[in-house]
Amino acid sequence: MSRPGPGSSSSRGPGATGTAVDGPSAAPLLARVAAQARWEAGTMLRNGEQVLLTLVLPALVLVGLARTEVVDLGLAAGERPVDVVAPGVLALAVLSTAFTGQAIATGFDRRSGVLRLLATTPLGRGGLLAGRVLGVLAVEVVQVVLLGAVAVAVGWRPDPLGLLPGALLVLVATAALTALALLLAGVLRAEAVLAVANLVWAALLVGGGLVVPAAALPGPWAALVHALPSGALGEGLRRASADGALDVRALLVLLAWAVVAALAARRWFRWD
């Protein structure tokens, strides 16, 4: 056990010494949110299971499907597998981080009282929410850079004009998926959140219009997939990658999900 040792000489900046210099006050709002975003992103990127979910599995899907023809991707004439798979894997990566990862992390944080404790700090509930969303976006940037580089390495040549519509779709999809994650984590027990979030991830990977385009899915299901956030994001990113255009229908679908999920999360989310 440490004794009240001599004051270490590592004080830095005002108020860093042992005596009270100023009354306690919060760091500025932007500094608090930035600190939380950094904390969230760091926590996600340090967590082995999260990295498996957000980077390793999408990379395996990308390389596996771009190089082989085990899955019928319903390719049009002149389309290569990587043209369909690469944007789909980016959509999968967004789903992993914004939905599955956030739902699980929030579910367990709620159970262990982390949300309650942070609500009592200068961060507060609003800052926590903002920090989380920014942390998710930061991880998504890492994912897009790394997975994009792998995709380019296996032959993906997206239309550069698609960057802007793609970024817009990812932003709105992140809002919708994070809100859905909070809704799930805010109403179910942590173990149930873990099970449901992973199940949804696997189900949408196979039949959610992410990696396998809606066109390759059976008729009525294909129509439904366009209305799912996963399908809208997958199809929207494929469109942006192919000809640089914004898929307006996909954007509207994602916006609708974002609004409805945010309202529902606001209504039903419980902090403890």
Binding site: S2, G7, S8, P14, S25, A27, R32, A35, Q36, P122
Partner: peptide
Amino acid sequence: HLARLHAHPRDVDVLAERL
């Protein structure tokens, strides 16, 4: 991280050492 949320936190190293 928690110290960063405050404008004038205690010295984290000193506090950590004490505990």
